[in-house]
Design a protein around this nucleic acid. Structure first.
Length: 415
RNA sequence: GGGGAGAUUCCCGAGUGGACAAAGGGAACUGACUGUAAAUCAGUCGCGUUACGCUUCGGAGGUUCGAAUCCUCCUCUCCCCA
C-alpha cells in the first residue's frame, strides 16, 4: 500500500538521482514536470539521444550520457536512440572548428552496427529502441525542407558559439551545416520526444527541437544536458579522433594507466560523471586529497578502481591496481606486454641494428627518430640502457629480451 | 558579376631571390624532479647509419647560377561591393 506521500518522496529521490552531474536542464523545472506527468498518465517518457555514426568506439565521455540514459531506463522510461544516418550526410558542426567530412553510406552502416553492439554494455538492450533518422528525413521533399528552414533565422544560427567563432575567424561555413540543427530538431518531432539528452555542446540543437515541436503543436521536450568530459590531456573534449580517451572496452590495465595520468584537478568531474560513488563521499575524498590527509594518488587509484569495476568487475579492478602499483611504484616490469616478432618483421640477419629494430617495431618513426631516442637515453634492453647508436645484435641475443622505450612503452622480443 | 586578401613543416604563425629544413608559440617525445598528477628545468621535434646527402613551403609550368620568396595558368578559402 503506497500513500501519495510515499510516491512523492520516491519521485524526489528519483529526481535527485537523475540530476546528478547534469550541467543544465531546460526549462529548469522541466524534469519534475515530465516525471510527474508520466506517473499520472502511467506512460513512460520518450528519452531521446541522437548519435552521429562517426566514431563508433564508445569511451568514458560518451558513457556519461549513456549512463544517465540507463538511469531513466531503470526508472521505467523509454530510451530511443536515433542513429543520424541521414544527418551524417551533413556532419554535425557542433563544437567543430572545421567542416566535418561527409560519410559514405557504407561507413555509416558499419558504424551504426558497431554502435548498437557497444551500447548494450551500458544500456538495457531490451528497453532500447533504435531508429534511423533517414526513415523520416529521407522522405522530406525540397519544398517541405525549405518550409522547415523558414522557421529558423540566420541570426539564430549564427548566435551559436561554434559558428560565431568560425565566422569571426574567417573560417568557411558551408550552407548545409546550417541545416543540421533543423534536421535534429525534426527528429524530436518525429518521435515525439519528451526529453532529449546531450552534451552541453548540443544546447542549440536541442533547443531547436523544442522550438520546432512548439511550432508543430507538440508538447515540448526538455533538454537534459551533461557536461562535456574533458579528455586525458585535460584540455579538450574526450574524443576518439584526438586520442585523449579511455575506451570502455579497453583492458583494465590500460584503463588504469590512463586514468592515473589525469591531473588532480580533473578527479572531481571523473568521480561525479563516471562513477556511482555517492556525492558526499566524493566530496570527502577530494577534501582529504587536498589537505594531504590522504595521498592524492590514492584517491585517484580509488577513482580508477571504481570506473574499472563498472566495466570489468571488482576483481579485475583490484588486479589492475596491483599491477599498476607493482610497475610504477615498485618499478618492476609489467606482467603482460605486447610481443614483437623479429622474424615476422623480417629481422633475421646475424646483425640487427638497434635503430632498425626500433623502427620496425613502430616504436620510432624511423631510424633517425630511433637514434635520437637512444642518444637521449630513452632506450633499454632488459633494464640496461642502450648507449651506442650503432650497436648491432644477433637475433639470438634478442629473443626473450624486454625492450623498454621511454617511461611506459614495453615490448617483449620474440622469434 | 566587380574589387581586395590569402594557402608555409601536426596546429597557430613568421619568412618577399642566396646565411632556409625554414623564426616564435602550442602539441608531442626524451631526460631530471615526482605521485606515470601539476608546475619547473634541459634536450629533441622533414627523411636518411647523420659533421654529409636527399625531399619539402596549395598544384602545374617558367625566369634565374640559385625560388617558400619573381612570372603564368589552375585549385581552394576569406573579406568588401552588387
Amino acid at each position: 500500500m503506497e500513500t501519495s506521500n510515499n510516491v512523492s518522496t520516491e519521485l524526489q529521490a528519483l529526481v535527485s538521482r537523475l540530476k546528478r552531474g547534469t550541467s543544465g536542464i531546460v526549462p529548469a523545472n522541466g524534469l519534475e514536470e515530465k516525471l510527474a506527468k508520466a506517473e499520472k498518465m502511467g506512460k513512460p517518457l520518450n528519452i531521446k539521444l541522437g548519435l552521429d555514426p562517426t566514431a563508433p568506439d564508445i569511451h568514458l565521455g560518451f558513457a556519461v550520457v549513456l549512463r544517465k540514459l540507463r538511469q531513466f531506463q531503470d526508472a521505467g522510461h523509454q530510451v530511443i536512440i536515433i542513429i543520424g544516418d541521414y544527418t551524417a550526410l551533413i556532419g554535425d558542426p557542433s563544437g567543430r572548428s572545421a567542416t566535418r567530412p561527409m560519410l559514405t553510406a557504407e561507413e555509416i552502416n558499419a558504424n551504426a552496427r558497431t554502435y548498437v553492439d557497444q551500447l548494450s554494455v551500458i544500456l538495457d538492450r531490451e528497453k532500447t529502441l533504435v531508429r534511423f533518422n533517414g526513415e523520416w528525413l529521407g522522405k522530406l521533399d525540397f519544398a517541405e525542407t525549405v518550409k522547415l528552414a523558414s522557421r529558423m533565422t540566420v541570426a539564430q544560427v549564427l548566435q551559436r558559439e561554434d559558428f560565431a567563432n568560425r565566422y569571426a575567424t574567417h573560417q568557411p561555413i558551408s550552407l548545409h551545416e546550417l541545416l543540421y540543427p533543423l534536421a535534429q530538431a525534426y527528429d524530436s518531432v518525429a518521435i515525439e520526444a519528451d526529453i532529449e539528452m546531450g552534451g552541453q555542446d548540443q544546447t542549440f540543437n536541442i533547443l531547436a527541437g523544442r522550438e520546432l515541436q512548439k511550432e508543430m503543436g507538440q508538447d515540448q521536450q526538455i533538454g537534459l544536458f551533461m557536461p562535456i568530459l574533458v579528455g586525458l590531456d585535460g584540455v579538450k573534449k574526450m574524443s576518439k579522433s584526438i586520442g585523449n580517451y579511455v575506451g570502455i572496452r579497453e583492458t583494465p590495465d590500460s584503463m588504469f594507466g590512463k586514468l592515473m595520468s589525469i591531473s588532480d584537478t580533473m578527479m572531481r568531474d571523473y568521480y561525479i560523471l563516471c562513477t556511482d560513488v555517492p556525492e558526499e563521499e566524493i566530496a570527502a575524498l577530494l577534501k582529504q586529497a587536498e589537505t594531504g590527509e590522504t595521498n592524492p594518488k590514492d584517491v585517484k587509484r580509488r577513482l580508477a578502481r571504481e570506473i574499472i569495476t563498472i566495466y570489468h568487475g571488482a576483481d579485475a579492478a583490484v588486479q589492475a591496481d596491483n599491477e599498476w602499483n607493482r610497475v610504477h611504484s615498485a618499478r618492476e616490469i609489467p606482467t603482460d606486454m605486447p610481443e614483437f616478432s623479429l622474424t615476422q618483421a623480417g629481422l633475421t640477419e646475424e646483425k640487427i641494428w638497434i635503430c632498425r629494430l626500433l623502427a620496425e617495431a613502430k616504436i620510432a618513426k624511423g631510424t633517425g627518430d630511433a637514434r635520437r631516442l637512444i642518444e637521449q637515453g630513452g632506450v633499454s634492453l632488459n633494464g640496461e640502457k642502450v648507449t651506442n647508436v650503432k650497436a648491432d645484435y644477433s637475433q639470438e641475443a634478442l629473443i626473450g629480451v624486454v625492450l623498454k622505450v621511454g617511461a611506459k612503452r614495453y615490448l617483449r622480443l620474440a622469434k
